[in-house]
Amino acid sequence: MDESQKEQAGAGEGDLCLLTIGEHESWLVQGRQEPLRLAMGYRALVPGQTLGQFHREPPSPLELEQAIAWVEDIVMPLATDLAPCSALRLTPSLLTPLFGPVTLPLARIEQSFAQLAAMAERDPLAARDLPAGREFAATLLILREFMHHLGFIEVSLLAAQP
């Protein structure tokens, strides 16, 4: 996590949360608190393994389920430790090219995840709106589980810095 990301988290209200989904780890900053390191990233869904359970492209239904269980094990303890946040921001990620800098409701993230699940079931129509790639799938899965289990109703995707 770099200094500009820490500044973005601290800007405005103290109860904003900034999530950075990195390759092998992610970071959560709440207001001006120290960043919290999370042992999950779009290339590290299982400790010590590149791309975790995602061996297929798109991931299989079983791979998705295993990844969900693993991410839940990391995210669920935060529900008791994390003070309520008024808003969630996501630093530029693999989701930014698809959605752009925008605020998305949880329902839109869930819709995209349902489309990913349909892709896993080999539904040919599901692939038309989502990019291929295990890394995109992992990023979407992490964000979805984070929002779903920590009660965020929307996420603001931040623009990439020029």
Rank of each mutant, 00 (worst) to 15 (best):
D2G: 10
D2Q: 09
D2C: 05
E3C: 02
E3K: 11
Q5L: 14
K6W: 06
K6D: 07
E7Q: 15
Q8N: 01
Q8H: 09
Q8R: 11
A11P: 07
A11Y: 04
E13M: 13
E13H: 13
G14D: 14
D15M: 00
D15C: 03
L16V: 07
L16T: 06
C17S: 01
C17A: 05
L18G: 03
L19F: 08
T20W: 00
T20S: 11
I21N: 05
I21H: 02
G22C: 13
E23D: 09
E25S: 13
W27G: 01
V29H: 01
V29D: 08
Q30I: 05
G31H: 03
R32I: 06
E34K: 10
E34A: 11
E34R: 11
P35G: 02
P35L: 07
R37T: 11
R37P: 01
G41Q: 03
Y42S: 00
L45K: 02
P47D: 01
Q49E: 12
T50M: 13
L51R: 06
E57Q: 14
E57R: 15
P58Y: 03
P59A: 05
A67I: 08
A67P: 01
I68P: 06
W70H: 15
V71G: 05
E72C: 05
E72R: 11
M76V: 15
P77T: 10
P77F: 14
P77Q: 13
L78R: 02
A79G: 15
T80H: 12
C85G: 04
C85T: 11
S86N: 15
A87D: 02
L88K: 04
L88S: 01
L88E: 05
L90Q: 03
T91K: 01
P92D: 00
S93R: 06
L94W: 01
L94M: 08
L94Y: 07
L94H: 06
L95D: 00
P97A: 04
P97E: 11
P97L: 06
L98Y: 07
F99R: 00
F99L: 09
F99H: 10
G100L: 06
P101K: 14
T103W: 08
L104N: 00
P105C: 08
L106S: 07
L106G: 09
I109S: 00
E110C: 09
E110P: 08
Q111D: 04
Q111S: 09
S112N: 12
F113T: 08
A117S: 15
A118N: 11
A118F: 05
A120S: 15
E121N: 12
E121C: 08
R122E: 13
D123W: 09
P124A: 12
L125G: 15
R128F: 12
D129H: 14
L130K: 05
A132T: 08
G133R: 00
R134F: 01
E135P: 03
F136Y: 09
A138E: 05
L141E: 07
L141I: 02
L143S: 02
L143C: 05
L143P: 04
R144T: 10
E145T: 08
M147Q: 08
H148D: 06
H149L: 10
G151H: 14
I153Y: 07
I153L: 12
E154M: 04
V155T: 09
L157F: 13
L157D: 05
L158E: 09
L158P: 04
A159D: 14
A160P: 10
A160Q: 15
